[in-house]
Write a protein that binds this DNA or RNA. Sequence first.
DNA 1: GAAGAGGATGTAACTGTTTACATACTCCCG
DNA 2: CGGGAGTATGTAAACAGTTACATCCTCTTC
Lengths: 336, 336
Amino acid sequence: MATIQDVVKLSGVSVATVSRVIHNSPNVLPATREKVLAAIRELDYHPNRLAQQFRTQRTKCVLVLLPRLGDSFYSEILKGIEEVASAAGYHIFIANTGNNPEMAKFYYEALIQKQNDGIIDFSACLPREYMEEIAGQNPVVVACRYLSNSNVPNVTIDNLAASREMTEYMLNLGHRRIAYIGGNTELALYRSRLYGYRQALEERGIPAEETIIYTADPDIQGGYDAAMQLLRSGEKFTAIVTSGDTLAVGAIKALQERKLQVPEEIAVCGFDDIEISSLLSPTLTTIRQPRGLIGRHAMEKLLGLISGKDENLSEQIVLPYELVIRASSGKFRNNK
Amino acid sequence: MATIQDVVKLSGVSVATVSRVIHNSPNVLPATREKVLAAIRELDYHPNRLAQQFRTQRTKCVLVLLPRLGDSFYSEILKGIEEVASAAGYHIFIANTGNNPEMAKFYYEALIQKQNDGIIDFSACLPREYMEEIAGQNPVVVACRYLSNSNVPNVTIDNLAASREMTEYMLNLGHRRIAYIGGNTELALYRSRLYGYRQALEERGIPAEETIIYTADPDIQGGYDAAMQLLRSGEKFTAIVTSGDTLAVGAIKALQERKLQVPEEIAVCGFDDIEISSLLSPTLTTIRQPRGLIGRHAMEKLLGLISGKDENLSEQIVLPYELVIRASSGKFRNNK
DNA sequence: GAAGAGGATGTAACTGTTTACATACTCCCG
DNA sequence: CGGGAGTATGTAAACAGTTACATCCTCTTC
């Protein structure tokens, strides 16, 4: 592997000049520049990025932490991030935490140890204290998920309000016994969505019933399993509100296997509006998050933190959501 | 930011000993180790990973290049990669090329410039000569896609055979005019799948007809658009073979919008067996790729290349596939 | 009690860049 | 023609670790 020293020898100029040529700095005579470039070409020299980054302590790379891979929910968000990042000359790397704190810790170590310039975290599976400590010293933005009352910059929608609005919509359709299948409430995100559901019920004077509230792994299988348990429990209900489209998809699958019509017998709604939600039959009523916007805002905030121009660690950016009404909710037919 | 020198001063031992403690090497007296650890704790010292990697010229990180983000096809593959990687103490970073050679080039530069130890490339959007040159000097494995006749290690299924088998299956159902919607044939991958389709037809003495062969962007929208064009063209056909599940999903959407029954009037099949294929109605007949296996083999090959134990650059690892028959193909009803 | 082995620790070179500062040169103007 | 400004280039010191090799102990063994 050729180094800058080889270029120095071949071109007959100093390291400083070679470095200047590499970085297109002015104040290099065209003839000198040409000589250096010729040497670089001849040696097939590539500056060692590790050495550069080490020297400057800047990588121009940011890390995006996802809770799971291949979730199409994130694709639009990542596009938004990439857009802003590449305009600023940054590149993004994505890593998977699998919601495993150990894994997440490794990647945060990478940040602390300067292997990248910042983190946008969609996984947020580490304790609040730890996150606050790191975010106090390093550029970190948490998005979609969040840590309640923390000094970590955050980009989300108002999950509580969205979930409440969805539940209200179900109530307005005439449903009274509405089951709930949601993600683990240890996560503030899922806690908010559950609160939204509870609030909507309470506002109508309908007490939330723990026997029809289920916690599940936030994927298709989780939704399927929870719905099956719900059906086996013998509880009566005419609708299911979920905290995620994948849960809704799984729940619908379970209902259909049991020959229950959606939405005629049971209405179901999701949350997130992932790509397949408009393709399934029935198509899914859900909450659409402004995914591109989330990505762009998160990256912009991160760039502010990296440059040091933005020091506001307690900023909570809340973006608008949209209730998307499709076939899976339908009207309540009081004919059961 | 504390450095190793600060630890040296506080603990009163030498850099070498501190380094030994950091790396858990033996031959450090327990008392010394404790002293050093105490200093590390007190200073909240984190070794600068950039400096470590720079010094050792090893990052213990590999890069996975995907053609697009949020494609659930890759999630199982990535799990397979991660499994093997973490067992070997490696971490993976994922980057998106968007099939853009410029982007891909940036990440290959990252490899050449030692920012990571190897690349597994699912995007393969760079010219063969370039890839061969880089793969000759650096650990690179191309997977799922490939470059024909090249000296770049490769992990795939036999796409040609799989596509041929799928088409034969359609022929066996009684279909005779089978349309084809496939990805851009500039990619060897899609070229193979198209050849498989052609071969199957020719073996039965049925000439492939260019008027019912379409090229499309390999996503839902692409499938939808191509199918719509096909319908508008007025050509008659009773089945559509596609080169990807997303294309099939889009095509089915178009057919259903035009009130054509799938599979009763038109049979459709996909390729890849992505997660949603078994959830749609009708469920999708498709080719299942052994995704976990692909990931594991690719990572194992890469580890071999990184360690230098494996120098076989022309190895083409071909894994088995499986024809998954579901509802979307159905039996041909000659009642049109 | 000397020799040798082996464990614990230290010293200093080295990794490949960037960059502050120094130097040399050219040009222009009073 | 001296000196100041400005441009082009060079020198050498960082950056923060790792590691080969040297050194110094402490045992063990004959």
